[in-house]
């Protein structure tokens, strides 16, 4: 092993050990706090973790060594070695802490079933008198998902060419454009549609328009990524051939790239509409209008029979969209 690599591995090993022990003492301190209501100061946890980590590392009882020096083989079975027991212990304590944090309560799960009786009876006895109201809200949801998808298509389509590595020349401008488009798309995609809905419901007010904008932004970002990956997977041969005829860059994209991506693009887009219809419901909960908003209102009023109607309608729409989109995508595959 090279000397720099060795030093790097040692540092990584020590850091692993320190984090390992700080985490273990953190968990222990949480449990003591939880069960005995005694607070252990956090700097104490950190100092203790570092101290134990350093000592065990020096003594050679180290998990980090095992990870970063895989060449050091010991014939010991895991249950006879220090690192084996450490890993076992850390998994165990993580599980115990998780159980307590999530407040898992099997007693409630099995004995309080009757509390949900209202919802269940609502589902089997829906109040069909409010059907018109629900259908109006449902139409809002479907159309907002449709508009979000339709508006997203041209934007994502254009952007995807600039986010495709194989189309952007490896010049300064090419690289810059590629990196900027990719980064923005990644950031926007990693922000959930719900968060966008909260932002837009403040911006343009609660209602379907806010929901539409939220889904559109999210769709542009994720379609740009899917589309551009599709471009990166095209056969480069036709691009070469079209370039060689003396075609301009735009002509090359239109004649060699577009025909190769059009059918996967359609498939992705329909799939996206499908996702958008589902998300439109959720987005409604946080101010995006439509059936989601209605569901939230009826649930807060404890009108379980109304909630029942809404649940049925959502299920039917999601199920239909699922079938239609699967069928269309199947047809596209054959093209």
């Amino acid at each position: 092993m090279k000397k720099e690599n060795k030093i790097k591995s040692i540092i990584q090993a020590i850091l692993t050990d320190l984090l390992f022990w700080i985490y273990i003492f953190g968990c222990i301190s949480f449990l003591i706090n939880h069960w005995f209501e005694k607070t252990i100061p956090s700097n104490f946890v950190v100092i203790f973790g570092i101290a134990v980590g350093l000592i065990t590392f020096i003594l050679g009882l180290s998990v980090g060594r095992k990870v970063f020096f895989p060449t050091i083989r010991t014939d010991k079975k895991w249950h006879k070695s220090f690192w084996g027991w450490s890993v076992f212990f850390i998994l165990l304590i993580t599980f115990v802490v998780g159980w307590n944090l999530v407040e898992v309560d099997l007693y409630k799960l099995f004995t309080k079933f009757r509390n949900a009786g209202g919802i269940l009876s609502g589902i089997f006895d829906p109040n069909l008198n409010i059907l018109t109201l629900c259908l109006t809200a449902l139409a809002e949801t479907i159309y907002l998902a449709l508009l979000a998808t339709v508006f997203a298509i041209p934007l994502a389509f254009s952007l995807s060419f600039f986010a495709a590595r194989n189309l952007m020349p490896r010049t300064f401008i090419g690289n810059t454009v590629y990196i900027i488009v990719r980064t923005i798309a990644t950031i926007f995609r990693s922000i959930e549609a719900i968060v966008w809905a909260i932002i837009f419901s403040v911006w343009v007010g609660i209602g379907p328009f806010a929901g539409m904008l939220a889904l559109m932004i999210h769709s542009v970002a994720s379609l740009t990524k899917l589309y551009s990956e599709q471009i990166e997977n095209i056969d480069p041969g036709p691009v070469e051939a079209i370039k060689a005829t003396g075609a301009s860059t735009l002509q090359t994209w239109l004649f060699a790239v577009v025909p190769q991506i059009i059918s996967p693009y359609l498939a992705f887009t329909i799939y996206r509409w499908d996702i958008n219809v589902r998300m439109a419901t959720i987005v409604g909960f946080v101010g995006g209008g439509g059936i989601g908003l209605l569901l939230l209102q009826q649930q807060q009023l404890l009108r379980w029979q109304n909630v029942g109607v809404i649940i049925w309608l959502i299920a039917i729409v999601v199920w239909t969209m699922d079938m239609v989109s699967a069928k269309v995508r199947e047809k596209l595959q054959e093209m």
Partner: peptide, 24 residues
């Protein structure tokens, strides 16, 4: 230019493929 893998645009017609020779 002629290529080993032909490099036609496979889901377009022969006529359209030939017309692309006029792009320049």
């Amino acid at each position: 230019m002629i290529f080993q893998q032909f490099n036609l645009i496979k889901n377009l017609s022969s006529l359209t493929n030939v017309l692309t020779g006029k792009l320049g």
